[in-house]
Write a protein that binds this DNA or RNA. Structure first.
Lengths: 254, 254
DNA sequence: CTTACATATCTGATATACCAGTTGCGCATC
DNA sequence: GATGCGCAACTGGTATATCAGATATGTAAG
């Protein structure tokens, strides 16, 4: 008996095999968006049955989506009890930022060594676009451009797998960021930091690129300051563990 | 209606919630062992039905386990066609090692800053044990001690999440390592590298610890040299991409 | 002998049904 | 009124059945 050899090219270790647009994948994406954008609040109950009904499918693909979200740390499944949107693990955020810094630093370094001319041009284009949306006070567009920038650096370094890890790390921090006040001047500062990274990459200066990227992510850590409003029980553990000052009060009384 | 607040403490972002010993988890662990240890060959077919029968359960928990393995990159699911043990993505291994180096370097650095006395003692104990099993030519025990060492460093740094990422990265490389010839003197060299890391941590020398760990992982990269035997279609992409020399021939003719 | 096509038989994806813990509320009790 | 207990309505975990796509094989035409 001859076994057929699938022609699939996995390309990386951690990537969901980009298996077609199955119902489970659609629901996964949908729920993920809702959770990351905080349209579903941390701690909120997720009902398999409701999701299934809302999408007009059975519980099976919903369950598959939820299991993957659980692996990503975005939902918590309590057996025979319920499924909930994960609270933001503020205690783990500093570690996540450390990991991201380490990964992005080496990415920038390699990008400086490997970047093609077109890659540099692409980076500059993203920089321009980001400046434009910043001038328009378009926060959503700014965030998109930021993501595009970091991905472009990863592409320039040819590190798709590391980029996937960074994306994973970004998720929790981004969710937290949605709860912070927009800081005046932050967009301009970020753009300058990005520009420094691009300049170092264009100059093929690995140490400079790594240092610039490190400064950038460091700045990100500092931007986790103030909460947007009186925050409910969105967090797991003590908020003061996030490394930055914070009223530390107003947790809901249970 | 009051909603109950689960007392679960997630602790990190990426960890499977350590949800009880469900059938799916058992099967996941079982299959994972078989795949990593190469008892299931890369490219081999996995039948949901067979696994289910072998474990005396239905296909549902088997499917859950396989989906998680697919997310980990250990199996590939071809819709309506079949599920296979992932071929080793040799082309992605250098990137995995780069990522691991970045993460373990910062881990060692933080460990040097944070390590308690007991943590250092624990590290030395592991070092001793590793020397013992090395003297006994116990390769399996050596590998276990190696894993314990790296985990202990991560524990000393209080980076459980980063350790989980490193574990993920180790998986594919370890699978590859299972196919390489044991290199004479490697165990002794590894132990010396470990000792350098511990010494730097004990001396609270962050730069030294980071450098020592970097050298260690660098040595690991170099150890990916020769294949154990004429290698079948265990690899995805060209083996020469692994960064080391290799006959590059004898792929199975389809 | 080669090639194209129809079809039988695999597979994974989904639907449905059932089971067993967990939780919360209400009633009985003190 | 406070407290302990037990039932009822949830939930997630598993089992079973059904559907549709992909592959392989056999057959007929060239």
């Amino acid at each position: 008996m001859r076994r057929r050899l699938p022609a699939g090219l996995p390309m990386t270790w951690g990537g969901e095999g980009s298996r077609g647009l199955t119902a489970a994948n659609i629901i996964h994406q949908h729920l993920r968006d809702e959770i990351v954008s905080l349209r579903r609040a941390p701690g909120a109950v997720i009902s398999e049955k409701d999701i299934a009904a809302a999408h007009g499918v059975s519980r099976t693909p919903v369950r598959e989506a939820l299991l993957r979200l659980a692996d990503e740390g975005l939902v918590e499944i309590a057996p025979k009890s319920g499924t909930f949107v994960s609270r933001i693990p503020v205690g783990a955020l500093p570690e996540a930022i450390v990991a991201r810094m380490a990964l992005e630093e080496v990415t920038a370094r390699t990008a400086a060594l490997n970047a093609s001319g077109s890659a540099v041009s692409g980076l500059r284009a993203i920089l321009e676009r980001q400046a434009e949306v910043a001038a328009a006070e378009d926060h959503a567009g700014f965030h998109d451009a930021d993501e595009a920038f970091h991905q472009a650096v990863a592409d320039a370094a040819r590190y798709p797998g590391i980029w996937r890890m960074v994306q994973q790390l970004k998720t929790q921090v981004d969710r937290f960021r949605h709860l912070t006040l927009p800081q005046p001047g932050r967009m301009g500062r970020v753009i300058e930091e990005h520009r420094a990274v691009v300049d170092a990459i264009a100059a093929h200066d690995p140490d400079g690129a790594a240092a610039a990227m490190r400064r950038h992510v460091e700045g990100l850590r500092a931007s986790l300051g103030e909460m947007r409003d009186v925050n409910p029980g969105f967090f797991d553990g003590d908020v003061s563990e996030a490394g930055m000052s914070m009223p530390a009060a107003d947790r809901l009384r249970p």
